Amino acid sequence: MNMLLLNGPNLNRLGKREPHIYGNETLEMIENRLKSLASQHGFDLQCFQSNHEGELVDRIHLAEDEGCDGIILNPGAFTHYSYAIRDAIASVAVPVIEVHLSNIHKREEFRHTSVLAAECEGQIAGFGSYGYEMAFYSFLHRFKRGMENG
């Protein structure tokens, strides 16, 4: 099984950027932890981060072309206004789970709306970096259930 961990703008600054909101872990630490978790369960996890909307769109398209089974996506600020990323998610058959480190619904009002959520399998927000693991376990459960059903 193949999965993609996709991170949007400014997430390359984790560990330095507003640690009181986003924590002290770096993106590399999160990626390594998730890769290890995926490997323990027989998954291959690819990681990609970009501050550029078009690169994220291209990577979503490529995920389907490569036979990816699921995408864990933290779109960062693109959550609130990127119809291009929303349309990219809608254009592929790969399920996507949206993840946010902070609880976007308890923050500034502009962060309360996700234009992506309606195209995603679900949204996980407010659990810090553990939200990535929650998304992984959600996919794991989904894949196991699919194998049992045929």
Rank of each mutant, 00 (worst) to 15 (best):
A90S: 12
N32Y: 02
F110D: 03
V99A: 07
L62V: 12
D58W: 07
P9L: 10
R86A: 15
L140A: 01
V94Q: 09
E148H: 07
E133S: 13
N2V: 00
I30D: 01
V96G: 04
N7W: 00
F43E: 06
Y137G: 02
E119H: 06
E119K: 13
S114N: 09
V94T: 14
G23E: 08
E25V: 05
R17S: 00
M147N: 02
I89N: 09
A125E: 12
L27S: 02
S82C: 12
L27Q: 12
R86Y: 08
G126D: 11
R13S: 10
A125T: 11
C120N: 03
L56Q: 04
R59M: 15
I21Y: 09
G54C: 11
A125K: 00
F136H: 09
L62M: 11
E108I: 06
D65V: 14
N24T: 14
E28S: 14
F43C: 04
L11Q: 09
V115W: 10
S91Q: 08
Q40L: 04
E119Q: 15
N149L: 14
L140R: 02
L5T: 04
M1R: 07
N7K: 00
S39I: 03
E148S: 12
E148I: 13
H105V: 01
I30T: 11
R107K: 13
S39P: 01
T79Y: 12
E108Y: 12
L34V: 01
T113Q: 14
H41N: 12
I85H: 10
I72T: 00
L62E: 13
A118G: 15
R145A: 14
L101E: 04
I104Y: 00
H41E: 10
L27P: 04
M29C: 04
N103K: 07
A84K: 01
R13F: 12
L101C: 03
A84R: 00
S138D: 10
K144L: 14
I85P: 05
P95R: 07
A63S: 15
M1Q: 04
R17A: 08
H41R: 10
S129K: 05
L5H: 00
K16M: 11
S102L: 06
V92G: 03
